[in-house]
């Protein structure tokens, strides 16, 4: 920091103050009060949580949901990003527009769209019934954590594609040619040259998307009500219940907050390390 910037520091502080105060008041304070109500009963609620079968099933469901949604988004997002990077400029812009459409969608739109597709009398469900797949089975799948993951993917895949696209388009395909010229098979070239290059971003994408899936409840609530066992919905029903057990809800909140923050920090650390290496190379 230079001296002249030091001189202007009061001005900068003044400019930044309203934003910081707003974030403190309407972001930090509410989260702090959640933790505060947990401390009030000395953390007893947190201990009780581990004997609550509902919580344990919710945690299991959420972990399943997060892993499935993360893996599915990355598996689908990668080839889509690859195809996109190889498209003509004008076509790519059009497809990009379509792909990023779901990003601004409310989770509710996705939910009802999925009910129309995969619900008990949904379009796809009925089509599948024609070829002998039981509608009961389809509906059972769609209303499970794995099925939820499918719906979540609708707005998670675009995030993955947007993250991967710059890396994929910047990848120098001559490296693959070089590897094959050195005697590597096509598969070995992809594994040894492309994968290490993509890995950090894939990791970032996975954790980011998994964290979103772990913490969201809107789509799930609209799709299946509070029937399915995932943590955010459990918390939601605990809050909505009258005369609710606030320390218990706060304990669930802490778990949600902790897991999501952990996943985001893993993603950020990985991204930072990767950038650091990139800078060092240059």
């Amino acid at each position: 920091m230079s001296a002249s910037q030091n001189r202007k520091l009061p001005l900068f502080l003044l400019l930044a103050a309203p934003g910081f105060i707003t974030l403190a008041m309407f972001f930090v304070l509410p989260l702090g009060s959640v933790l505060g109500s947990l401390v009030q009963d000395g953390g007893q609620a947190l201990l009780r949580l581990w004997q609550d079968p509902l919580f344990l099933r919710g945690l299991q469901g959420s972990v399943m949901l997060a892993i499935t949604a993360g893996a599915l988004s990355v598996i689908v997002g990668l080839p889509v990003a690859f195809k996109l990077a190889r498209m003509k400029e004008s076509a790519r812009l059009l497809v990009m527009f379509c792909i990023s459409l779901p990003l601004t969608f409310s989770g509710l739109i996705v939910a009802y769209g999925f009910i129309l597709c995969f619900g008990r009398s949904g379009f796809i469900t009925l089509l599948l019934a024609e070829v002998g797949v039981s509608p009961e089975w389809v509906a059972g799948l769609v209303y499970s954590p794995v099925g939820l993951a499918l719906a979540y993917c609708y707005y998670l895949i675009p995030r993955v594609v947007l993250l991967l696209l710059p890396v994929v388009s910047n990848f120098d395909t001559r490296l693959l040619t070089a590897a094959t010229s050195l005697g590597a098979s096509r598969f070995a070239a992809l594994r040894d040259v492309l994968l290490p290059e993509m890995m950090p971003t894939l990791k970032v994408a996975f954790f980011l998307v998994a964290a979103v899936a772990f913490g969201a409840y809107g789509t799930a609530l609209a799709l299946v009500g509070s029937q399915v066992n995932i943590l955010p919905l459990l918390l939601y029903s605990r809050i909505s219940d009258t005369g609710s057990d606030f320390p218990q809800a706060a304990a669930i909140s802490l778990v949600l907050l902790g897991v999501c923050s952990l996943m985001m920090s893993v993603a950020e650390m990985s991204a930072l390390r990767h950038e650091h290496r990139k800078h060092a190379e240059n």
Binding site: V34, S253, C260, M264
Partner: peptide, 16 residues
């Protein structure tokens, strides 16, 4: 993302 919306909403219910 690190602070899920349902947790934030819960915080609002407590403090506000």
């Amino acid at each position: 993302i690190a602070a899920p919306p349902v947790v934030l909403g819960f915080g609002y219910i407590i403090i506000f």
